[in-house]
Computed example of a mutant assay.
Amino acid sequence: MIEAAMIWNEPNNKSHWDPEIDPDWRLFAEMAVAAGQAIRAAHPTLPRVLGGISPIDPAFIRNMESRGVLDQVDVVAVHGFPLDWNLWQIGEWPAKIEEIRAVTSLPVWVSEVGVSSFGAEEVQAWGVERTAELLVGKAPRIHWYSLYDLPRAWEATTRHREAEGSSYYRHFYMGLLREDGSPKPALDAFARHAPALGLCQWFHFEDHRLDEAVAWMRRLGVRHLRTGLSWADSFRPNALAWFDRQMEALAEFDVTVTFCFTPEHRGIAPHHSSPPQVKEEFAAFCADMIRRYAGTGTVRAAGG
């Protein structure tokens, strides 16, 4: 059911980790080491992936190596959106991967890559084709972000919000499917490159799109999926029932599950991007989820 466990998401992006509290990433490194050890204790062979970095920064990987993090993971990962947010061109993708390979011998996954349809849906379709041309065969895993547009009634997970100007609104146009579930031209382009291209799709708590997403992934021939189980959501009523439903629905895919999001009441600051007060609590959550879902292909009853 779980192909790999990813420790956090974009730890070098202030939308996901607070640099004011942890400017040198010492606290993140200590948490990641604890999580990596806990995952290994729960499962002796499951690959552990350092949360995909954004921006792609070799200095961050060197920092993690110096703090012992790379000894507790088996893969590093990168995220890139050169047509929307990055200050580099799409043709630089192979060079960006090589920048990371130059500082670590670990495999490098592309756990998020995408192009928005904010400017034009035809640009997004071209972006799928060009991304596949540049990356297929260059990285062991490529997860396209994402299957669905983010519903406009929700908020994008970013610290910047509307202060980003048009950059903020691009978050809502990353899907191959529009919010209403209708396909964009990019869907056909993606289908031509599946299963070499996988998907990254975050499911919100009790997400109404789950079953339809599974149907679309079957239709597209997707094999590899990246999604998340939120530590913060684990404190909601009926959290395990939702986690069980989500993971059982996704059981036929090779899932990289991302563990992230600090519960407000367990953070140094009351925010999902805060380092936790007690790093072992996050590590225990990772281990619990691995024991519950990894390797069996079945789920226990909620509360079991």
Rank of each mutant, 00 (worst) to 15 (best):
P185R: 05
R62V: 12
K184M: 02
P276T: 15
R67I: 09
P58Q: 05
A132R: 01
E129G: 06
R300D: 09
A156K: 00
S111Q: 13
E92K: 10
P275C: 10
N63G: 09
A5H: 05
M247F: 13
V214H: 04
N238R: 14
E162P: 05
S234A: 14
L197W: 03
P47R: 04
P47G: 08
G297C: 12
V75A: 00
R48Q: 08
A125M: 03
H171M: 07
P183N: 07
W109P: 00
V78L: 06
E112Q: 13
G303K: 12
P151I: 11
L50A: 10
V278G: 06
L250H: 02
Y145D: 08
F60S: 06
R291P: 04
R226L: 14
E129D: 14
L87Q: 14
Q201L: 05
D188G: 08
P58F: 04
F203T: 03
A189S: 15
S54L: 14
I2N: 02
W154P: 06
G137I: 11
L46E: 10
P237V: 10
R192F: 12
M1N: 09
E20P: 02
W202M: 07
R48H: 15
H16P: 03
L177M: 11
L250D: 01
A59K: 10
E92D: 15
A239K: 02
F253G: 00
M247H: 04
P151Y: 04
Q201Y: 05
P276V: 15
G304A: 15
T104A: 08
P19M: 05
S66D: 10
V115M: 03
W154L: 13
H208L: 10
R245F: 15
T104Q: 10
A269E: 11
I56Q: 00
A302T: 15
C260W: 05
E20G: 07
